[in-house]
């Protein structure tokens, strides 16, 4: 799952650094992800994982690191399964 998340980030996060250089816990916004880019990341994740982020999860904290995104995706799968 983390590889797939990193794939979406490399396509849409428009980071000034290679996603591979970031740890799972590193803050993506600190690394240069803008709020516009984060919307594209959300769209990319929805498409890649065939899910929809509900309003309650549409906040910065949900998308601030690879690990945070993974937690969110696991939570979403558990509630929709």
């Amino acid at each position: 799952m983390r590889d797939q998340i990193r794939q979406v980030l490399s396509e849409h996060a428009r980071l000034p650094v290679d996603v591979a250089t970031l740890d799972d816990q590193d803050d993506l916004f600190r690394a240069g992800m803008t709020s516009h880019a984060s919307v594209n990341v959300m769209l990319g994740l929805e498409e890649a994982f065939d899910i929809e982020f509900p309003e309650a999860m549409l906040r910065k904290a949900t998308f601030e690191s690879v690990a945070a995104i993974e937690t969110a995706l696991i939570h979403l799968r558990s509630v929709t399964a």
């Binding site: 709020s35 516009h36 919307v39 959300m42 769209l43 929805e46 929809e52 982020f53 509900p54 309003e55 309650a56 549409l58």
Partner: peptide
Amino acid sequence: GDNAQLLLIYKES
């Protein structure tokens, strides 16, 4: 423009 971006992903609660 900012809102247009947000509305690509926003769902009502």
